[in-house]
């Protein structure tokens, strides 16, 4: 009796196991979207492409970039939600992809806030007198910026290793060289970016550095004085 019960329970367990799934796989039923949905999306993508190309012929100033990115994001959302089935998918997949976009935003956002904000911190240091005994003798305008990105043979290429301030013939010694700010282009202009575009040379007032490749400072040089 007891043995019969035992075997019965065994069989019951076996049935439950078979129903568990991997012995007899349940069927995956695909979610088929109507054909119309795909073609509407495709049409929208074509129209948006035409719009973004057309908008590029019109100058909206600073909004150019924003308009292009917004249209691209609408297109990308269409592809992701419909073509990639994200709208009908497990919500977890949407969380995964959203997390990547959030981290991409952190990555690009913080990097840009750094590179755009450089020089703001150095500005304070740049205003310090270089020689404490003669605080009004020189200013940070004497700093030499080296264009390390200049193509070879370019007129803007400077002699000497990057970041080197040419020695002055004058008696005053510079114990603390002014740090060379790496690009801090707040203004949207190449010439406003200190290092990259065009070499910057000592201010006209200063004693002539051993120049040769050194050009006069452009008037549009960013002023570190507030």
């Amino acid at each position: 009796m007891s043995s019969a019960e035992h075997s019965h329970s065994d069989a019951g367990h076996g049935d439950a196991h078979a129903g568990h799934g991997h012995h007899r796989p349940s069927k995956h039923v695909p979610h088929v979207l109507p054909l119309k949905t795909y073609f509407i999306c495709w049409g929208a993508l074509m129209v948006l492409t035409a719009i973004t190309v057309g908008a590029s012929y019109v100058d909206f100033g600073a909004a150019n970039l924003i308009i292009a990115v917004v249209i691209a994001t609408i297109k990308a959302s269409t592809v992701a939600l419909i073509f990639m089935h994200l709208l009908y998918d497990e919500k977890f997949n949407a969380i995964i992809i959203a997390s990547s976009i959030i981290f991409l935003g952190i990555f690009v956002g913080f990097t840009m806030s750094d590179t755009e904000g450089r020089g703001l911190g150095e500005k304070i240091q740049g205003e310090r007198p270089q020689n404490i005994s003669q605080p009004f003798e020189r200013t940070h305008h004497d700093q030499v910026l080296v264009d390390t990105w200049a193509p070879k043979g370019s007129t803007s290429a400077m002699t000497g290793p990057p970041g080197v301030i040419p020695p002055k013939p004058s008696a005053s010694v510079d114990p603390v060289p002014v740090p060379v700010p790496v690009p801090a282009s707040a203004a949207p202009s190449d010439s406003a970016a200190p290092a990259p575009e065009g070499s910057v040379a000592p201010a006209p007032s200063a004693s002539a550095a051993p120049s040769g490749s050194v050009k006069p400072a452009p008037s549009t040089k960013p002023d570190k004085n507030p």
Binding site: F107, M112, T115, P183, D190
Partner: peptide, 16 residues
């Protein structure tokens, strides 16, 4: 994203 970041950095530095 790294490449896009590089694009935005260099676009900011060498805008013209």
């Amino acid at each position: 994203g790294g490449l896009f970041c590089a694009f935005f950095i260099f676009r900011s530095w060498y805008y013209d």
